[in-house]
Simulated assay, not measured.
Amino acid sequence: MADNTQHSGKKILLLSVSAGAGHARAAEAIRAYAAIADPASTVIHLDVMDYVTSGFRQIYTDFYLKLVNHAPTLWGYLYNFTNEVKRDSSIEKWRRGLERWNAKKLLREIQSFQADAIICTHFLPAEMLSRLIARQELNCPVWVQVTDFDLHRMWIHEGMAGYFAANQEVAFRMRSQGIAAERIHVTGIPIMPAFAQAPTRAICASEFGLDPSKLTIMLMAGGAGLGQLDQLAAQLLQMRFEQMDEAIPFQLIVLCGKNTKALQALQNLALTCPRRLFPIGFTSQVERLMACADLIVTKPGGLTTSECLAMALPMIVNAPIPGQEERNADYVMEQGAALKAIDNLALEFRIRELIAHPQRLNTMREQARRLGKANAAQSVFDIVSANL
Rank of each mutant, 00 (worst) to 15 (best):
N69C: 08
Y64R: 10
F149M: 12
R95F: 13
L129M: 01
R108G: 10
A126N: 01
E92Q: 10
D116R: 05
P39Q: 10
Y60F: 15
E127L: 09
Q58S: 06
W75Y: 13
K104G: 03
I110G: 00
T73L: 14
L132A: 10
E137A: 07
A134Y: 11
W143C: 01
P125V: 01
E109L: 10
A117C: 13
V146D: 02
Y64D: 08
E92C: 09
L107K: 12
G76P: 05
W101M: 06
L151D: 04
N139L: 13
Q114E: 09
L67V: 03
N102K: 03
G76D: 11
H70K: 10
R95M: 06
I133T: 08
T82A: 04
D50R: 07
A71L: 06
T61C: 15
P141I: 05
R95G: 07
K104Q: 06
L124A: 15
D150C: 14
R135Q: 15
P39Y: 09
V85L: 13
R131C: 05
V146E: 02
S130K: 12
D148F: 13
H70F: 11
Y60I: 15
N83C: 02
T82V: 04
V146F: 12
A103Y: 00
W75K: 02
S89E: 04
S112D: 02
M128F: 02
Y77V: 12
G76C: 09
F123C: 04
F113C: 08
S41G: 00
C140K: 09
R95W: 10
K104L: 13
V48N: 04
